[in-house]
Design a protein around this nucleic acid. Structure first.
Length: 686
DNA sequence: AGCACGCCGACT
DNA sequence: GTCGGCGTGCTC
């Protein structure tokens, strides 16, 4: 059992003093009798350490060192945190095993199901298990852990009779619910109708959760932000689902860990949370839901950059759970789930859509040609008149595509974008009334002159919400103006009263009006649909539909105006209220151009040589680039990073991820320099 | 990641 | 002649 005698090489003549340190313990500590070997995942970042290491479990820790618990182990010369993956009888490791030093807590925070999911996520996104577990398991909070466990609330589902009313308007909606209630695992891509006050979708989700509870299973609902979280929780309560747990990283360490433990200890089997809760240890998981999956908040910004929708899809497969992804719009990725037959679409028919949605009108420069020069105004006459008229009937929502104050300025005469006279960077106005400043070199544009027409006056072209609120206040004297947005003085508003008011909001910050808005005006359509990213059009449509969904139906006088020259197909998709058609066309086009999600793509970003080394070890992928990335060089370097794009058919996605993982492991073992970032299916591919 | 061991420059 | 640079290698 003991190490080979060779280890006891006698070193005669050495002073005896160091030997005095050794005998801390009189003999080897007694080792656990059954399954004495713990296979652990050490919590260290380098990819080449992403494999199990084996330790002996001292008998004293036998009961506590269960699979899923956090332990401390000696790794090399340091003490590191680790998770017990499993307990086994025999070690695979040939050499001697070190003992587990300490069990940090007996709480088995990584359940077998979550471990399997985390491993799959690490593999899929070319990351490490340790990285994924760091996303999946909230930091421990010892005091919270010691708190008394509240007793189990009565099982939900035994409550009130099941309602499926919110699903009635959708083709396949009732079937989806029945399937759920019967213990099935349907998968649906759902395009939500606007409801009264835009609040029907939380009810639909709550009813799906309730149906799943009837089958005795738990549910997990992932939403983009805290506002949506509150809405779903309220709807769950209204639907009679009790004891749902709120799980959001920005609730703070103690509440977060408390909620996590409540789920882990089986106190609740319904979780509503933000992206990291896709890993929540819900027992008997029957349903996973991703609401508004096109929202960028679902994309995890930390390595390995998994997306909540994809994590949930993976999880639905691994745990045999039903899957529901939905939104007012449809992401191209969700469309791909439909196109491959992995999920079925759940949508309302045209007549229902027409009956529920407001009238949408596009005010493009063509439409406005007859208005003459005034058409160039940001708020053209017809829009002004529509707002005036709608204000008599209720609140009017004004959506502006950018937060904050005027980021970009243009020549007041010819409207050419104003550029810095020295470095040609874009000019912006950093604060109200400030002098226009170059966004690249920070020089003040004091004696600016237009390079196109020689004019010397500037005007704002991409106007932020604060400025809009200010302008609208002047255009409609006496009317209350409320601003909602992260940069607005009053922050993000959840709701506004039903009375007449102008509500100026940035995308995602639109408050709900209980009786619906009388009208919505979507400003600067040209700005909203212009951008280099693959998802620019999809994003614009998603934001427009989210705002338009808060407006009353056309029959109740609800009206939406899109102002500006937005991209034709996006504008048309909004006018026709056809997000599914838009997503289908977009996916077709991506297939033709070999763009994701029709193919799988990975980006490798970092210093030129480092990227080249990583890419050189990857076989069988089409290599695009490298190209220098925009923006400033990373700190401590004069050379900008480069980015290489790797492209493979979807079916080779797993293999690509595996090769990248292997390449990164070689890289970290060899200590190739620089910082390299690998992203699979990056959200912001340009 | 840390920390060892292991071969080539400027200093006591 | 040593102290010490950080280039490979390993950690159960």
């Amino acid at each position: 059992m003991d190490g080979p005698a060779a280890e006891q090489l006698a070193l005669e003549g050495l002073p005896v003093a160091p030997a005095r340190r050794r005998p801390r313990r009189a003999g080897p500590v007694p080792i656990a009798e059954s399954a004495p070997v713990a296979r652990v995942c050490v919590d260290l970042p380098p990819p080449h350490l992403d494999r199990p290491f084996e330790y002996l479990v001292p008998a004293s820790m036998d009961a506590a060192a269960r699979p899923g618990t956090r332990v401390k182990v000696r790794f090399g010369a340091q003490d590191v945190d680790a998770y017990v993956l499993e307990r086994v009888d025999e070690a695979e490791h040939e050499g001697a095993l070190a003992p587990v030093r300490r069990v940090v807590s007996g709480e088995p925070v990584v359940t077998p199901a979550v471990l399997r999911l985390a491993r799959a996520v690490a593999d899929r996104w070319a990351g490490t298990l340790a990285d994924v577990l760091r996303l999946a398991v909230p930091p421990r909070h010892a005091r919270v852990e010691a708190e008394d466990v509240a007793e189990l609330p009565p099982a939900h589902g035994a409550g009130r009779p099941l309602s499926g009313e919110a699903w009635a308007p959708y083709r396949g909606g009732a079937a989806f619910l029945q399937h759920l209630a019967g213990g099935g695992t349907p998968r649906a891509v759902w395009t939500a109708l606007p409801g009264p006050a835009g609040e029907r979708w939380p009810d639909a989700i709550a009813q799906a959760v309730a149906a799943c509870a009837v089958s005795g299973r738990g549910s997990l609902v992932v939403v983009p932000d805290a506002r949506d979280l509150d809405r779903v929780l309220a709807a769950l309560e209204a639907a009679g689902v009790e004891g749902a747990v709120r799980l959001a990283a920005d609730d703070g360490p103690a509440p977060r860990y408390r909620s996590f433990l409540a789920v882990l200890r089986g106190r609740s089997r319904v979780v509503v949370g933000t992206r990291a809760s896709a890993f929540a240890p819900v027992a008997d998981l029957g349903l996973v839901v991703c609401w508004d999956d096109g929202d960028g908040l679902h994309a995890e910004p930390r390595a390995p950059y998994p997306h909540a929708r994809e994590v949930l899809a993976l999880r639905a497969e691994l745990e045999g759970a039903a899957f529901l992804v939905g939104g007012a719009s449809r992401s191209v990725e969700a469309q791909a789930l439909v196109a491959t037959g992995w999920a079925r679409e759940v949508v309302a028919d045209r007549a229902t859509v027409r009956a529920r949605t407001p009238r949408v009108r596009a005010l493009t420069s063509v439409e406005l040609a007859r208005e003459g020069p005034a058409a160039a105004a940001r708020l053209p006459g017809p829009a002004w008149r529509a707002i005036r008229e709608a204000l008599a009937r209720g609140p009017v929502l004004v959506q502006v595509p950018r937060a904050g104050y005027v980021p970009v300025v243009a020549c007041a005469r010819c409207r050419a974008a104003a550029r810095c006279g020295v470095c040609h960077g874009p000019l912006g106005v950093p604060a109200h009334g400030a002098i226009p400043t170059c966004a690249w070199c920070a020089r003040l544009a004091t004696d600016w002159r237009c390079s196109e027409c020689g004019h010397d006056q500037l005007r704002s072209v991409r106007v932020g919400s604060e400025r809009t609120a200010e302008e609208l206040g002047r255009a409609f004297p006496g009317v209350t103006v409320r601003a909602s947005g992260s940069r607005a003085a009053s922050g993000v508003l959840a709701t506004v009263p039903d009375g007449p008011a102008l509500v100026v909001a940035t995308p995602g910050a639109e408050p709900v009006a209980p009786a619906g808005y009388a009208a919505a005006v979507l400003l600067d359509a040209g700005v909203a649909t212009s951008g280099a990213s693959l998802r620019t059009g999809e994003d614009a449509l998603r934001r427009w539909l989210a705002a338009a969904s808060l407006v009353r139906a056309a029959d109740d006088g609800g009206q939406v105006l899109v102002v500006g020259d937005g991209e034709e197909r996006v504008t048309q998709a909004l006018v026709r209220w056809d997000p599914a058609g838009f997503a289908a066309r977009e996916l077709d086009e991506r297939a033709q151009l070999a763009l994701p999600p029709a193919v799988r793509v990975a980006t490798v970003t970092g210093p030129r040589e480092a990227v080249a080394a990583v890419v050189a070890r990857v076989d069988g992928a089409e290599v695009l680039g490298p190209v220098p990335v925009d923006g400033p060089a990373p700190r401590g370097s004069l050379v900008p990073d480069v980015r290489t794009v790797l492209r493979v058919p979807r079916a080779h996605g797993t293999a690509l991820a595996a090769e990248l993982r292997a390449s990164l492991a070689v890289r970290s073992a060899r200590r190739e320099g620089g910082t390299v970032r690998v992203q699979l299916d990056p959200a912001d591919l340009t």
